[in-house]
Design a protein around this nucleic acid. Sequence first.
DNA 1: CGTTACGTTGATAGGAATCAATGAGGGTGG
DNA 2: CCACCCTCATTGATTCCTATCAACGTAACG
Lengths: 214, 214
Amino acid sequence: MPYGLSANDIDKLDQSVSHTKLLQKGETLYRQGTSFKSLYAVKSGSVKITSLNQEASEDVIGIYLPGEIIGFDGIATGEYQCTIHAIETSNVCEINLSEVQENIPGVSQQLLKHAGRAINHGRYARSVAKVSARKRIISFLLDLSDRYRHRGYLATEFELYLSRGELGNLLNLSAETISREIHKLEREKLISIVNKRRIQIKQMDQLKEILIAP
Amino acid sequence: MPYGLSANDIDKLDQSVSHTKLLQKGETLYRQGTSFKSLYAVKSGSVKITSLNQEASEDVIGIYLPGEIIGFDGIATGEYQCTIHAIETSNVCEINLSEVQENIPGVSQQLLKHAGRAINHGRYARSVAKVSARKRIISFLLDLSDRYRHRGYLATEFELYLSRGELGNLLNLSAETISREIHKLEREKLISIVNKRRIQIKQMDQLKEILIAP
DNA sequence: CGTTACGTTGATAGGAATCAATGAGGGTGG
DNA sequence: CCACCCTCATTGATTCCTATCAACGTAACG
């Protein structure tokens, strides 16, 4: 749902802030509690955003795909409230806020739009929390698919990069429930699973119908 | 958690955009689907933000208190994604985006901060969804209390303005569960209830401890 | 080749939803 | 002014979904 910058916008940012970072799988972009430095646009790969709960274990908040912007969690307080890990080899592009706001009029508007998208996506995530495990998982898969499609990637096959446990954490379900429901979807031939973590959407329309049905 | 503008900031906005609106209880500020016009700062009273789900019934997303800013849901797409109703007599102050961004340098930064707060609050709401009904309700009450305190209001007694059903909707619980849990808290003398909808926090520390405990 | 993390599958328990009935205001019209 | 209705709140009984506990399988890796 946070569909991200247009290719055009990314080019603009590229020219103005050419500072990009390469992250290997598992590497950290920033950590919860460290002071806010800049926003980042994901250029390639994907990252996961997590947050420490009271029990000091990590809650998975979401994942970000190319074109999407991260770092808003640090703007309000001056300290990042979350941690970003690359879940595959990824490139991110640094967006120095003050620099950008001074030099590129209009980008500030763009950033606000991105923030708005993030807020709307949060709202969407909230609404997903009300439905059954089955629908939650389908919602997640279709949301990912949609976001890939909007960035020009294949919408019907993609890698999850998350373990069952992380997925469960993200969707507020147990790892066991994730496993069971995903396999039920596969038995029903609505999706296929390759190598545990790669998803093929087989029946997009039927999946959408399930979400609509009571 | 979206603590809102400082009194100072609100004054600044007041001077630049003196256009304020009075909303009677039940009146609508804007509706889902209508085109984005401006952000609004709540000056007094309180409003609720709702969104239509597939079944075309209204999901309560949250409530906003004085000093907090609403309307970000319309920025990304140009159409408001939610509806705002006054739940008591309220004053809001219009924030014309382009006007403000041109004439008051720095406010744009402020707005981004507010968006950041909204994003963080959304994250918080997500994390609340993982815990028991009892903790969810306590979390909600303490969050409200905290936000009132930060705006200079009484933190230990306040009006809910929401029915049990709306509260349940907001916290992803049934109205019956809300009723039961609230009365359990009252029997335990942790809170008092006046007239069904007014809350007195009696044992703030104990309530906080419940949230921390496993 | 053992160790470790992840995934699957089954059995059981528990928390909240749902269904159902009753009570308590609040407003309206006769 | 009172009877009626309608919404909201409360309380109890039952059901159901998902978490939890437990055991086992599997793949990666030192």
